[in-house]
Simulated scan of single mutants.
Amino acid sequence: MRTLLNVIWLLLCGIWLALAYVVAGIICCLLIVTIPFGLAAFRIADFSLWPFGRQLAKRSDAGAPSTIGNVIWIIFAGWWLALAHLATAIALAVTIIGIPLAIANLKLIPVSLVPLGRVIVPVGSRQDPWRPVAVS
């Protein structure tokens, strides 16, 4: 079911969202100071391509620089992106077929608000993504 929802999402709106975030990421990476924001835009683009079956998790090594960057991000881009995702989710929820797509848009709101210090992991993953797995 996740694969089917991801394919529908990709065809109807995921590719356009991802392209927009990639363009924003390229523009941010052209300026040296905004490279962390460009990398965050690429992370959002990856998540917006295939959102079903994945979730956002906080990195254990994220500290004060991520928090400061997130405050700057929220002021200049985050709240606009969150409002756009919310408006799109409301428009998609009008139809029964659009309800899962609306839920995917709502999943993009947290990562569009605070993308720094976050990582995308599979749903149900309780492992810290930055610690190696002990193999016995």
Rank of each mutant, 00 (worst) to 15 (best):
I35M: 06
S112L: 02
L4F: 07
V23S: 09
I120E: 13
G117P: 05
V133P: 00
K58A: 15
A62K: 05
P36D: 07
P132Q: 12
L10A: 10
L19A: 07
W16T: 06
L31P: 08
L39N: 08
M1Y: 07
W50S: 06
P100I: 07
V23E: 09
G78I: 04
L92S: 03
G53R: 02
G98A: 11
F42I: 02
R118I: 04
T34G: 05
I96E: 08
T3E: 09
L86H: 08
A40F: 03
S112H: 07
P110G: 03
Q55G: 06
I96Q: 08
Y21D: 12
L83R: 13
L92F: 09
D46P: 00
W130R: 06
S66E: 07
I96N: 06
I35A: 04
R118T: 10
T67R: 15
W50D: 08
L11T: 03
I90R: 00
L5H: 11
I27R: 00
L19R: 04
V71Q: 12
H85Y: 14
Q55V: 09
P36L: 06
V114N: 05
I68A: 14
G38E: 04
V121R: 11
V33C: 07
I103N: 05
A104S: 10
V121E: 12
V133C: 04
W79K: 10
G14W: 01
P51M: 12
V7K: 02
V123T: 14
S48N: 01
